[in-house]
Nucleic acid binder design. Structure first.
Lengths: 335, 335
DNA sequence: CTGAAAGCGCTAACAG
DNA sequence: CTGTTAGCGCTTTCAG
C-alpha cells in the first residue's frame, strides 16, 4: 500500500482528520477512548506524519542550515556537534554543508537552503565580505556567523578571542626567552587570520621585539602551506628560533616539514600553534597549543539563533567573544 | 514583503502560474518574450521557488539521509564526502546524522527522516541486527548499508574486504618473523569487528601459529579501549611481539598507551593497524596500516542508491566488496 | 503557446 | 469533544 495519510488513519478510526491531527500534535481535548482508537489505527497502518505537508501550512520546517568551509578541518565537526546537540534538544533538525572555502559554492548552498525553507542559518563563511549572503539576507532568515565575521551585513556573531589567544601564545614564547619569533599567518582577509597576526604583533611590540618581514609569512590555513612556509623559514640565512602557527592544519604541515627537514623541534626550534591537533601529545616534545572552546562555540551560536527564530523582538545584533586557553606542553622551551 | 510566491510572479508578469511553473522548471513550450517577462519578474521579486510545496505535489524531496555511528571517527566523514559529491552532481541533497553508536538514536533519526520524506537512505548501522530499521523498511524507501551489514533485512550492501585486509596485515607480521601476534579486536557482533578477527585467524592458522587466548582481546573500536587493551597486553608475563589493531581509533589509543608504558614501538613491539590514521607518519617508526578506499565506498553506495531510487525494476539486492590496501611503513620490523 | 482548476497532506479556525 | 472547510505554494492534466 502507498504511504498512509492522515485520512487513512481518520477513516480507520472512524473520526475526522482534524481529530487525528489533534492527537498527533498532542493538543489534548480528545476523549481518551477516541484517542486510543486513533493511536491503534496509527499503529496498525504504520502511519508516519508527513513533515513536508506540515511545513507547508505551518511555514516553518524546524530545520536549520549549517555551512562550514572545510569538513576536513577537525575544528568544524566539533563546533557542529555543539550546534547539533542543542538543536536536537530543542526539536530542530540540522542540515550540514561544506563549501570547501568557495564563496560560489556557498551561494549555491544558500539557494538550496532557501528553497527548502530553513528556519535559520549558522555559517562560517568562505568570504567575509559577505556578498554571497545576499539572498539569505533578502529572505530575512535569522543568521548567526561563527568563527568568522561578515563585513557587508550586520549579523549576530560568535567568535573566539583570536587576538588574545595569539597574544598569549607569542608572549609565552617570549617568556621562554625567544626573540626571533616567526609567524605562519592565515589569510589576512579573514578575521581569524588577521586577528591572530594582530595578537602576535601586539606581543612583539609590547616586549620591544622587532617585526621582521622574513619571519612573517602568510599561508591559507591548509596543511600544504604549513609545509611550504616552514621550509621557507628553514632556508633563511638567519633562521627563527621559534614558530607560531596560526591554525591546526598549518600546524600539521609545519610539524611534517620539521620532520622532513630534520629541523629539530624543541632543540633547534621552538613551536606553538593555534588550535588543538590530534598529534599534540605524540610528537616529541609534545606541542604547546592555544585551544578553543569548540563545542561551546556551537552551543552559543545555536542559542542565539534560537532566540532570533522564536522571539520577534529583534533587538540589536550581538557579538560574542569566547576565550581561548593556553595549553602548555613542552615545545616552546629549547634544550 | 513576505516571501514572494509563484502567484506574485505570475501577476507581475501578467501570466498564469502554470506558465511561470513552466519556465521555472525549464519545460519549454513558452514564447521567448513571455519567458523573458517572467524571468524579469522573478529577478525583481527575488523569487525563490518553494521546495516544500514542490515536494508536496511531486512526492519526492530530492534528499537522501545519511546515518553514521561516529562523527569523531575520521573514516566516516571521508565516506560521506564521497556520497555527497556524487549526490550533489545528481541533484540530490544530503542530510547527515550521527547516532553515536546508539540503536535507539538511530531509530529516532530514522523516524525524523521518514517524516521528512527522504528519497533514500545510506546507513552504517549502530546495530547490525537491524531491528531498529523496521520503520524504514516498512516505508519501502531504498536503503544502502555501508561498512556494516544488516542481518534482519536483505539490503544492498557495500563493504570492504575486512577478512582479506586483516589476513594481509597478519601475514605481513608473520613474514617479518613474528609469532606472538596479539590482536585488539573490534566488537565481535559487528561485521568489521568479526571479519577482521577472521582474517587474523586465517593467517595464523595458515602459518601454523597457535591462537593464544591472552593475545586476543576485544575492544569497542574506540580510543579508550585501544589504551586499556594495550596495557593489558603489556601486563602479561609473556608479552606479544606484535600487535594488530582492528581500527583507527583503537590504533590511536594503542600508540598512546605504548608511549605511556614506554613500551618501545619498533624495538620491543611491532605494530600494524587497520585503517589510516593521521599520526601514521609522525610516530617513530611510521606505522604500517591497512588502508581502505573511503571515498570510493561512499561513491559506490550512492550509485547503488541512485539506481534504486530511479529505476523501478528492483532486481535482487547486491553486495559489493571493495579491496583494502596494505600500506607498508616501518612499524612491523623490530630493530 | 497559455490558462483554469484539481489536488498533494496537513493545520487551524470556526461551528456545532 | 469532534467535524467541516479553507487554504499553504506548487505541478499537472485538460481545455482552449
Amino acid at each position: 500500500m502507498a504511504k498512509p495519510t492522515i485520512e487513512d488513519v481518520a477513516k480507520r478510526a472512524n473520526v475526522s482528520i482534524a481529530t487525528v491531527s489533534r492527537v498527533i500534535n498532542r493538543q489534548g481535548g480528545v476523549r481518551a477512548k477516541t484517542e486510543a482508537r486513533i493511536l491503534t489505527a496509527i499503529e496498525e497502518l504504520n502511519y508516519i506524519p508527513n513533515a513536508v505537508a506540515r511545513s507547508m501550512v505551518k511555514k516553518t520546517t524546524k530545520t536549520i542550515g549549517i555551512i562550514i568551509p572545510d569538513v576536513n578541518n577537525p575544528f568544524f565537526p566539533e563546533v557542529v556537534s555543539g550546534i547539533e546537540q542543542k538543536a536536537r534538544e530543542n526539536g530542530y533538525f540540522t542540515m550540514l554543508c561544506n563549501t570547501n572555502e568557495s564563496a560560489e559554492t556557498e551561494r549555491e548552498l544558500l539557494q538550496i537552503f532557501l528553497e527548502r525553507s530553513i528556519d535559520g542559518l549558522i555559517i562560517t563563511t568562505a568570504d567575509e565580505d559577505g556578498e554571497q549572503l545576499q539572498a539569505a539576507i533578502d529572505a530575512k532568515i535569522p543568521i548567526v556567523a561563527v568563527d568568522r565575521a561578515v563585513k557587508k551585513y550586520e549579523l549576530d556573531t560568535v567568535l573566539v578571542g583570536n587576538i588574545d589567544g595569539a597574544y598569549q601564545a607569542t608572549r609565552h614564547l617570549i617568556f621562554q626567552g625567544h626573540q626571533k619569533i616567526a609567524i605562519i599567518c592565515g589569510p589576512q582577509n579573514t578575521t581569524p587570520g588577521y586577528e591572530r597576526f594582530l595578537g602576535y604583533k601586539r606581543a612583539m611590540d609590547e616586549y620591544g621585539l622587532p617585526l621582521v618581514n622574513e619571519y612573517i609569512l602568510e599561508g591559507d590555513f591548509k596543511e600544504a602551506s604549513g609545509i611550504n612556509l616552514t621550509k621557507k623559514l628553514y632556508q633563511q640565512a638567519d633562521r627563527p628560533a621559534a614558530i607560531f602557527s596560526s591554525n591546526n592544519l598549518m600546524t600539521m604541515g609545519c610539524i611534517k616539514a620539521l620532520y622532513e627537514l630534520n629541523w629539530k623541534l624543541g632543540e633547534e626550534v621552538a613551536f606553538i600553534g593555534f588550535d588543538d591537533v590530534d598529534i599534540a601529545t605524540f610528537v616529541n616534545p609534545p606541542l604547546t597549543l592555544v585551544s578553543r572552546p569548540m563545542r561551546k562555540l556551537g552551543e552559543v551560536a545555536f542559542d542565539i539563533l534560537l532566540e532570533r527564530m522564536t522571539r520577534s523582538d529583534q533587538g540589536a545584533k550581538r557579538h560574542y567573544v569566547l576565550s581561548p586557553e593556553l595549553n602548555i606542553r613542552q615545545s616552546c622551551r629549547l634544550k
